[in-house]
Amino acid sequence: MTDFIDVLEQQLVAAHRRPERRRLVTVPWRATIVFAGAVAAAAVVVVAVLALSSPSPQPVASSPPTQPPQTTPVTPQPRLSLAVLNGTTVTGLARGVADQLTSLGYDEPNVVTNDTTNQSRVRTIVYFEHGHRTDALGVASCLHIGSDRVAPMDANARALADRAVVAVYVGADWAR
């Protein structure tokens, strides 16, 4: 049987034996995106300055190739079947959360607005099916919800979530 303690030990020993120089070139993906973004922004500025400072119709000898418009890439998120449920009487809360998740790169969640069983939920909770706790923590993190409000799916949430593996049950604290 594979054991976590043994696997971690193998990884640590392998990392210890690895030459340190190689480790330095490991750049976090966030830093890569920031660097790429900075290069792209600099290129746009250079093109703009060149365009504005040379109004004459004479063509520039070596004009840079036209760049497609730069857009901020949306962080790719794991493909999850998500549901957002409104546990309050305030309309539009679930839609707002769903839009926020979509804008962060998640697939369009199933927005459940016909829940009349509990409209007095105080706290927002992220529920998860077995094996999807890490996914739920990711969703909670994106919504700035603490890990203490991530919980296994209960029967009520499961009935409403319609096979979603992660369900955000929005409470009154979200409206504040």
């Binding site: 976590f4 303690i5 696997v7 971690l8 990884q11 640590l12 990392a15 190689r22 480790r23 976090p28």
Partner: peptide, 18 residues
Amino acid sequence: RRMGMDRIELTDEMLERV
């Protein structure tokens, strides 16, 4: 990440052992 270590995918058996 700095040490070049991959995330360990934990099976149910490994979690039970932990």
